[in-house]
Amino acid sequence: MNPIALHTIFEMLAYAMGFRTFLWTRQRLAPTAFRHKDEVAWIAVSAIVGAALGAKLSYWLDDPLTAFQNFPDVRHLLQGKSIVGALLGGLSGVELCKKIVGINQSTGDAFVLPLTVGMCIGRIGCYLAGLDDHTYGIATSLPWGVDFGDGVARHPTQIYEIIFLLAQYAWIHARRHAFTQPGDRFRAFMIGYLGFRLLVEFIKPVFYAYPGHLSGLQLLCVAGLLYYYRDIPRIVNILLKGNRSAWEPR
């Protein structure tokens, strides 16, 4: 089967499984995230719209030479996307929606498992798509290097991400009773993933380097971590020690 077709199939499967997991999670693992059923619809729509815009804008930032090739022909502008941009765009959309609609409680905890499931499935599709997906790593001499079709053994960064996501969720779930502040499980997910992507991008090809030889996605990761900078000490303390930090109100 064509690698692009495989990627599309797994991407659709990721959305479907992520949504089904969300329906289960919001009742079992995060029952207080939503007070009314109509809040689910508002949050879902804002998350989808924000994620779609963020995914596209992050692609333009990360690889502007390709995205704006032959501009104003928009075909290249519509091609790529990034999960980092989707996460940050979805977060922005949800927070804006909550302010407009007047939703005061944190809703993020309901998305931790669905995002983990969906992203893992999606990365399988990225791995099968090979070079066409542009999510592979740089050349490596390590024994688990993978030839994606060009005769070069590369870091299978898609597999690294799957392993990280599963390990991160297991850790967050194991500490779930220590996360007494609503939304902290989602904050832990975002802080961990953004930190992982900031580091793993160093072993991936840089399509356009910004000052400091950072990619556009790394700049987005830094921006996301700065957004959570007040929460990082508390989240790290909970993850490492399993208890609330001195900065958390009691």
Rank of each mutant, 00 (worst) to 15 (best):
F189L: 14
P31R: 08
L225G: 03
K81V: 00
A153Y: 11
N237K: 03
F10P: 03
H134Y: 14
P233Y: 08
A47C: 07
R20V: 10
Y160P: 01
Y210K: 05
D133Q: 13
H213T: 06
Y136D: 01
R154E: 00
R123A: 05
L88Q: 06
E161R: 08
T140H: 12
T32Y: 06
Y169L: 09
S215P: 05
L214I: 08
L65N: 13
C126K: 04
I235S: 04
L142D: 01
F164W: 15
R175D: 00
T107G: 02
Q181M: 14
S92F: 15
A86S: 15
L87E: 06
M12V: 14
F10Q: 04
L219G: 12
R250S: 11
S58I: 03
Y227Q: 05
G192Y: 02
P114H: 09
W24N: 07
L78A: 15
V101L: 01
G118F: 11
A41G: 00
A110K: 01
G242A: 09
A223C: 10
V45M: 12
L194G: 02
Y15R: 02
R244A: 13
L194C: 06
L128M: 14
R20D: 00
M119Q: 15
G151K: 05
V101M: 02
G50P: 03
Y227K: 13
A47F: 08
L165G: 00
D133A: 15
G122N: 10
L57I: 14
R234C: 13
A51P: 07
Y193L: 14
L131W: 10
I172R: 12
L128I: 13
G151I: 02
P143S: 13
V152A: 03
H177N: 13
F196M: 07
I238R: 07
S245N: 08
A67K: 09
Y208V: 08
T157Y: 06
G80P: 04
S106N: 15
M12W: 13
L194I: 08
V94L: 04
P156S: 05
N2G: 08
A51V: 03
F22L: 14
S141D: 15
A55E: 02
